[in-house]
Amino acid sequence: MTAAQTPAVAARRRNRQRHIAETLFWYVLLLFIAAITILPLAWTLLTSLKGPHDAIFSVPPQLLPQDPTLDNYARVWKQLPVGNFFLNSIVVAIATTTLNVLLTALAAYPFAKMKFRGRDTIFYLLLATFIVPPQLTYIPGFVLARNVFQYYDTLVALVFPNLATVFNIFLLRQAFRGVPNDLIDAAKMDGASELRIWWQILLPVIRPSLATAAIITFVTSWNDFLWPSLMLPTMTNKTLPVGLAALQGMFASDLRATAAGIVMTIIPILILFIILQRQFVRGMTGAVKG
């Protein structure tokens, strides 16, 4: 080792040590935040598996169940039509998502690619409704459901008002704008109708944005609570979040059962998230581009 090399080697080593320390710092920080994020849900999961002899409350707290059991789940399942809740949630979310994306994709196309009278006026009017609190619409919505559309206490009541959302129109308009005009013009030269162009050429091109819109709509529908809670008094008609609120009322003092209910509500959407993780994240954030 020559004298000239030593400082360089030392500097490199110092650099590497600094790098390791920095990396360690970030991992500790990230793990800490992950713990805060996961703790409430992990605690709920562990509580739901606790048997009658495991303490819910003790000093210091007992985290792990001594004799893990699924009894709490069985108890909730026996008392409440959880299977119905699942099915209702799935039916509503799929129906809402499919129809909503279809209708908003239809509406978004002319906003992006056609010139017509009143286009900007209609578009800004739509944008303005974005700030209307949805809860405001629930009072007249309730009257419509009971007196006009007669879908009170049916699942249709959850699908119908959510068939079109301004947010998705805006999102898909952005997507259509990104499609080159040549593509549309070429199809027109071939004599294709606007509807065919939309369905056969444009929809496949903007598929990532359609997935985004679909995911946002699905998650919103799945987790929706206030409107479904107003519309679905009959137990077997309830969706998961509304059923969970009912469970919370019935098992108020039974934390193990409540925990089981919470876990059963979260598991389906969590599985979906794990399968479609990449699309989820891109979907929920892709909506904002400056």
Partner: peptide, 22 residues
């Protein structure tokens, strides 16, 4: 890590709200 931080977002405020209540 990013995925873990995202879990509360999709879990839904009703389920998570009751978890916090516990």
């Amino acid at each position: 890590f990013r995925a873990i931080y995202y879990v509360p977002v999709i879990s839904g405020s009703i389920a998570v709200g009751y978890a916090w209540r516990m």
